[in-house]
Write a protein that binds this DNA or RNA. Structure first.
Lengths: 334, 334
DNA sequence: TTTAGCACTCAAAACCATTTCGTGCTAATA
DNA sequence: TATTAGCACGAAATGGTTTTGAGTGCTAAA
């Protein structure tokens, strides 16, 4: 167990390192603790023993280890309160009634990225567990239609329908009617099988050239993009952080950011604002991810901030909490 | 004017440098030209005089200048023919009938990025000069609607409509009817003014609580995202190129890639495949952009490959030409 | 027009000494 | 027992020197 001065010391070291990005030495803490550097060194040694501090080389100052950051976040951070300045900047966004919720979220994260120099992400919830509410069909020309699928949560996805031969307008509208009658309320994932087993036989009875129509709609509606709405802001920001100062570091982190499974690693299922430090992030040992889920009338998403482990934890956590609250309030309020 | 051996020499130097990324010296070309290094040096000096070659320092080998690449692309490249291997990889995509055109384009560019280690971009045409073809309105709940706007070229954009008070279904459908009657054929850019001056007075006559309805639709339909459909693939690829070997180079190029006006600099209006070398690219002096416009029944877009100036020009140009052809064929064919 | 030969340049690598920062340890002290 | 002063030591960063190697320009001869 840590003594009280040791806790203070750990906090001081973490915060100093967050500010300066340089290993902190014993001498620099003397005044603050009103004792000699030797005393500090003794405590530092205990903290290192306990796994909360590290050295970059045998005779360097100390930097926090992953566990050190964790302990700081869990036990040492000051009570949470967003700074007035930060709040002000975000407020203007949410006061603007004109802005759609999605745009407001994007804009907020842009601001956060700009003022913190970290990277931010919005990740819309996949629509796979949504239910189909309506299909609209709009003719573009005699061989092409657009099918617009709307889910119960308001998600819209449009698909092109290419007909191999032209089909009369009545046949299209009859098909649309059948699709709506049969598919409303169907979970998106079940649409393909329902098309094949329930709808195909019915269309056959009503439509002359039913194969053309069926094939066209089947290929349009069978593969819904699990296309999530993903918006990154400030990917290049993280490069401003001094920890990325060799070519390899930079290349490595950029590659991670661009990789295909990046998105899956950001998704969050916890309602609280959570902090994933270094290896906990699963993205890269050198970064921390702060993220949370938001829920707006059945529609969910994740918002996340990615920065170096040496991140301004309090500030980011506070901003994210504030943002989450306001997103959910705006979602209800309007 | 360049002598015939000088042309051969320039070609050889460009191609060697593209392969090796290292300045090429006079001695290494002796065997190929069956002469001494001194002779080569003389010709190199002329080529440098003419502006086609450069030195990295006073006693280094030569590298092509921007003009050197330009001359190579315009006059020295071999006749264009895509390699069988590259073609094979792209063919599989276009043989897959299931794939939608947009997906096929994305997939092709993914492949190109993977096999070349360059970055590729698809840029859908902006919808600003499209005309509104239809507005569909779908109720989500009593305070929220979704307005779906479809253009004559098949572009679909959905907007959320938030009502301040609930409005009857009849009023909504009446409004929809009016919108469609008045707005069909209107260029997207003119929608806001038409709403205000033509439609507002009419709605007033038909709808009880017309202000609520009008305000809701106005804020939904007044700002169309000039949101272009932009898809980058392999942004991190360019970092594999040896020219980006200092931290600053890497940071610089990544920042350029992430900057807001990147998109506008990629758009292409020429039907041919065009090459923009270094400063011609307007993105960064260290990159080359190869790009072309494609047109599929009235819908246009740009496809582009971004790589170092030291790019495999022939290969990229050939692939892009092949791709453009097949996109347009597929667009017609189905 | 081509070539051999030579002097010269510059970048990169290797080497070395010096400085700086901060440590661990020991022994003395409060 | 906790703190402190003092000292020897380690590693990184800094800066200067030398060496090496690739490749050039120029001149004079073939």
């Amino acid at each position: 167990m840590l003594g009280s001065r040791q806790k203070d010391l750990l906090r001081e070291i973490v915060e100093e390192y967050i500010k300066s990005a340089r290993p902190v030495g014993s001498k620099s803490l003397c005044k603050k603790f009103k004792c000699s550097s030797a005393t500090i060194r003794n405590d530092m040694a205990s903290l290192e023993e306990a796994g909360y501090l590290e050295k970059t080389h045998i005779s360097s100052g100390r930097i926090p280890s992953e566990e050190g950051y964790r302990y700081y976040v869990d036990n040492l951070m000051e009570p949470k309160k967003i700074s007035g300045e930060d709040m002000l900047k975000l407020q203007t966004i949410f006061n603007n009634k004109e802005l759609e919720l999605n745009d407001a979220i994007s804009k907020s994260l842009e601001i956060i990225s700009d003022i913190t120099n970290y990277t931010s992400v919005v990740l819309g919830k996949s629509s796979s567990d949504n239910k189909l509410q309506k299909v609209e069909v709009v003719p573009i020309n005699d061989r092409q239609l657009i099918a617009i699928v709307i889910t119960d949560t308001g998600h819209v996805e449009s698909k092109n329908v290419y007909l191999e031969e032209s089909v009369t307008a009545e046949e299209i509208s009859k098909t649309t009617e059948i699709l709506n009658k049969m598919l409303t309320g169907t979970p998106i994932d079940d649409v393909p099988s329902k098309l094949e087993f329930d709808i195909k036989p019915i269309i056959r009875n009503y439509i002359q050239n039913y194969e053309v129509v069926y094939n066209a709609f089947y290929s349009a509606l069978s593969n819904f993009t699990t296309n999530r709405d993903v918006r990154f802001t400030g990917k290049a920001n993280i490069l401003k952080q001094p920890e990325f100062n060799t070519v390899d570091d930079v290349k490595n982190i950029i590659s991670k950011f661009e990789s295909k499974d990046m998105v899956s690693k950001i998704e969050e299922s916890d309602d609280e604002v959570k902090v994933y430090i270094g290896s906990e992030s699963e993205i890269d040992d050198s970064v921390t991810v702060v993220k949370t889920k938001y829920k707006v009338d059945g529609r969910e998403g994740t918002i996340a901030i990615i920065g170096p482990k040496r991140m301004e934890y309090e500030r980011v956590i506070n901003m994210l909490e504030y943002l989450k609250e306001h997103i959910e309030a705006k979602g209800k309020g309007e």
